[in-house]
Amino acid sequence: MTTPFDGITPLPHLGVIRAEGDDAVKFLHGQLTHDFALLDLQHARLTAFLSAKGRMQASFIGFKRSPTEVLLVCSRDLLTPTLKRISMFVMRAKAKLSDASEEFLLYGLAGSAIEKVAGSAMQTSAKADLGNISIIGLPPADTVPRALWVAPAGTPAPEGTPLAEGVWAWGEVQSGVATLTAPLVDTFVPQMLNYESVDGVSFKKGCYPGQEVVARSQFRGAIKRRAFIAHADAPLHAGEEVFSAAEPEQACGMVAQTAPAPGGGSDAIVVLQLSAAESGALHAGSADGQVLRLGTLPYALKDDL
């Protein structure tokens, strides 16, 4: 790494949906890909909200602030339409969903900043509460630990070395776990972003919208696309198509998330047809666009476990 990945940064690109009420947990359990019924106060969940066809509408980091209050952290550009859609299913449940983005502060912590703020290292998906402050372990980036700091508005910001927004974005890419944004809505089933391999899907819970599609993809060998980490020498954009020189007339994938690379160019999470990933000679934007070079994921895929 040529750029230090150690410090603290605000996360204005994220928003917060609050679910509260006696049925809040039960309601979310029936709507999202992960098990919220068994979620305790010491852990968080990576999860997604799907269409009936199994396509991702939003992704979240969800955690309980109390037995009757859950916060869902998501990309801010998806919050309003996602909140509207999920709220349609509340009906008679004793649960209220609202946009609580202005009621909470969100910061990213990287490297030694986590121990300085939390008092100890954080495992992925572990949650520690310091009064009203919640700190959630995130997947590491290039082996460097990361965490999400969430606190009520008005709470003093965590102290530490400022971390540039672009460097944090690069860390998100290096984690290999994409956050769904507006250009990607209704494009991927969770396995295309490797969510089942990073504990973003439970196959033991009950039904939720799109569950049959997800299960069929998993157990009938229907996963034909996967997420990979890639590098290009010029800027990339979420939603940009990827082409293979072997079949230049048709896109074989899409850029899911991107950030400036410390050494120049762009790093990205890209979703590719498995056959195209194996063939090499990948290009962004068009069949003769800039070259994409695939890197190594920081985790094993479920198929490989």
Results as ranks from 00 to 15, higher is better:
36 F>H: 10
37 A>M: 14
38 L>M: 11
38 L>C: 07
40 D>V: 02
41 L>W: 01
42 Q>Y: 10
50 L>T: 14
56 M>D: 13
58 A>Q: 13
61 I>D: 05
63 F>H: 11
65 R>M: 09
69 E>I: 03
70 V>W: 07
71 L>N: 01
71 L>P: 05
72 L>T: 03
72 L>M: 15
74 C>L: 13
76 R>C: 00
76 R>H: 06
85 R>T: 10
86 I>C: 10
94 K>E: 14
102 E>C: 00
102 E>F: 00
103 E>T: 02
103 E>F: 02
105 L>G: 02
106 L>A: 01
110 A>Y: 05
112 S>N: 14
114 I>T: 03
114 I>D: 04
115 E>D: 12
115 E>Y: 05
122 M>C: 07
125 S>L: 12
127 K>V: 15
130 L>W: 06
131 G>T: 06
132 N>M: 03
135 I>E: 01
136 I>R: 00
138 L>H: 11
139 P>I: 02
141 A>G: 11
141 A>C: 01
141 A>E: 05
144 V>E: 14
150 V>P: 01
151 A>L: 07
163 L>S: 11
168 W>G: 02
169 A>E: 14
170 W>S: 10
179 T>W: 12
182 A>H: 10
186 D>N: 15
191 Q>P: 02
193 L>F: 04
193 L>H: 04
195 Y>R: 10
196 E>F: 00
197 S>K: 06
197 S>C: 09
198 V>K: 03
205 K>F: 03
206 G>R: 08
207 C>M: 12
208 Y>W: 13
210 G>Q: 11
211 Q>K: 05
216 R>A: 12
216 R>E: 13
217 S>I: 04
223 I>R: 03
226 R>K: 12
230 A>P: 04
230 A>L: 07
232 A>W: 04
234 A>R: 12
235 P>N: 12
237 H>Y: 12
252 C>M: 14
257 Q>M: 15
262 P>W: 11
263 G>D: 15
273 Q>T: 11
274 L>K: 15
274 L>N: 15
277 A>D: 12
277 A>L: 13
279 S>P: 06
281 A>L: 05
282 L>M: 07
287 A>D: 15
293 R>E: 15
295 G>L: 09
298 P>N: 14
298 P>T: 08
299 Y>N: 13
302 K>Q: 14
